[in-house]
Nucleic acid binder design. Structure first.
Lengths: 363, 363
DNA sequence: TTGAAAGCGCTACCAA
DNA sequence: TTGGTAGCGCTTTCAA
């Protein structure tokens, strides 16, 4: 059961000494497991990683030893020897003018997607969104980097180009040459929404968008708006665009926008705004006894929340954080492999989920 | 400038070979810096860590070499040799019935506080909040653990007791024997609010609280309510308690609660609810031309947002995430030191910030 | 003030 | 199918 030979074993003695003098409970290492199982440490390593076949009986002995000693391999040692930290960094500035729940949904989705592939997420926010990015790259703390809350003109684009750590953007910056970017195809989504309404005879469509500032600081708000406007022009329909108010304290902006849109005589409403705003508008319409879709058609574009939580669930082209983040993680993983992916955009095709809130325009 | 001796240097040759055959740019190690500066690696290490004095001239030579080679020490190697990962794990389940912006504020605050002490944050959410906690403990991935979104009856309490990795709770679970917990002293805060109002003659106070579920799943909502009720009873004043509605879609619950409280004839309002809810109520009062504090007094208890973003800034006892998290990080650090702190509660005394919205009751 | 060298606890190559 | 062992790139003791 032990490898100790009949003569005095200096190594074993030293180790015993080390473990006994350590304060408190000594941490179990692969050496102890090997001794306990009567095999070499390499066999233990292979038995646990499965990278080499190990005789059934041997493996069982090792597993028993692992269980008995409650061994778990030391993360730092694995990182150093294995040249992988199994950590991805997520850089998310969390600018104060953003809608926190939406951004949080993406951060959480990266964590879930990463764990699926045995990776953990290191969170870089505030000023560390930029500083931390080069730091984790140069120290090798992270094997890859996920970039969230991408601005049209984002510092992190230049940073990403200057480091060798694989980096994937979730969102599309204006200048994305040579970068790997994952995102919903917002333009297609916006066009599809316009088309659906135009096909049904709507000629005057309200678009309730995000806050003013979102159209300067986010990469996707302007993409939805401009694609919608362009397609509307092609289809000969008119779009009335309105923004919603301040994120946390808006109590009038959204209602005011609805009033304006109704005055403008729109027969359909496209939403590209927060759950809160959509909840207010839909609730208001219900209060007004408006018949949906008879009096007005409703579509939500790129909603990243559960549409069925609205007072009335409406047609939606969902933005699924889990989907973007899962793809981003897979790209990062394959960037670490032998055949790294080509740089470029990976736009996820929109999927339309009907709820019966879109109908023909009633003259 | 080089240590290569006149005879063939096998080691140097091997290393050159390794570096040249590596795909792409080889990563600079401490060995290269040492050679470049003409010193030993231990001197480089000490020069960079400052743990041993190094002659000025030597240090400068090393710094120059570091700059020239763009060296940064490998994180994994440091972790293994230094027996510190410089990573703290944050466990935050992010239950869907919670107010995301509030919870996010705490996560961000831990990240900022940790960086101040050269630590990074590993984010454990969803099911990893529990699984990840034991994992990072047993693998030594994190040097310490911060527990967020603490439930009154939290699984992670038992977990924390079963691991040897230092753990600090931000929030107070019902059973907190032997744990290190940091939090605002919610009870004191609630009592102080009640006292201020009672002192000014108010005998009927409205308390607008969080959602129903928060009083079962959060550790602090019930603490505020029960402390307020208890003190009110002592002072002989009456508290009308109301909850607000669903977090993301509440468009009527809050208004309804306000109407009820006004009907009940309260002369003062204590808030312990979201920024959104407080924003709605304060805005509504302004619309009603209610004079504050002449007609009604307003106090916000344990608000973790910027009170000055409300339509009318009101008296507040702020809950400052940065403060709790900074203290929690410091406790974690000292848990790693030679004199670890005593377990127990660390309740932060409330501070009252007046805005002129509390006045005497007008009969 | 500095250097040599023994680890840290693994992974993975090379032999057997 | 298994074992021996050379690293991985640092930190830190022990000597000089």
């Amino acid at each position: 059961m032990t490898l100790t030979s009949s003569i005095f074993n200096v190594e074993a003695f030293r180790e015993a000494l080390r473990n006994s003098t350590t304060s408190g409970v000594s941490v179990v290492t692969i050496n102890e497991v090997a001794r306990e199982a009567g095999v070499s440490i390499s066999t233990v390593s292979y038995a646990l990683s499965g990278k080499r076949s190990v005789a059934l009986e041997t493996r069982q002995r090792i597993e028993a030893a692992v269980a008995r000693l409650e061994y778990s391999p030391n993360a730092s040692a694995r990182m150093l020897a294995g040249r992988r930290t199994n950590i991805f960094a997520v850089t998310e500035p969390m600018r104060s003018d953003t809608h926190i729940p939406t951004h949080m949904a993406f951060v959480l989705a990266t964590a879930v997607a990463a764990r699926r592939h045995d990776y953990d997420i290191l969170l870089l926010t505030e000023e560390q969104a930029r500083l931390g990015m080069s730091r984790v790259a140069s120290t090798g703390l992270a094997d890859g980097i996920l970039v969230l809350d991408v601005a049209p003109n984002d510092d992190r684009v230049a940073l990403a180009r200057s480091i060798k750590t694989p980096t994937v953007f979730i969102g599309v910056p204006d200048d994305h040459d040579g970068l790997l970017c994952v995102d919903l195809d917002f333009e297609s989504a916006a066009r599809e929404a316009v088309d659906r309404l135009a096909d049904l005879g709507h000629t005057r469509i309200g678009l309730l968008g995000m806050t003013e500032t979102a159209y300067e600081t986010s990469n996707f708000a302007p993409r939805v708006r401009s694609a919608a406007l362009a397609r509307a022009a092609e289809r000969g329909v008119q779009i009335e665009f309105r923004t919603t108010g301040h994120i946390q304290t808006d109590r009038t902006g959204t209602r005011a926008a609805l009033v304006e849109l109704q005055k403008a005589g729109v027969s359909a409403l496209m939403f590209h705004c927060t759950q809160e705003a959509q909840s207010v508008v839909v609730g208001e319409l219900l209060d007004q006894q408006v018949q949906v879709p008879y009096d007005i058609s409703l579509i939500s574009v790129a909603a990243s929340f559960d549409i069925d939580e609205l007072p009335l669930p409406i047609d939606v082209i969902p933005l699924v954080p889990a989907e973007s983040c899962e793809l981003a993680v897979e790209l990062l993983l394959s960037s670490l492999s032998d055949e790294p992916p080509e740089p470029g955009l990976r736009l996820i095709p929109p999927r339309y989920a009907p709820r019966g809130t879109v109908g023909p325009r009633i003259a």
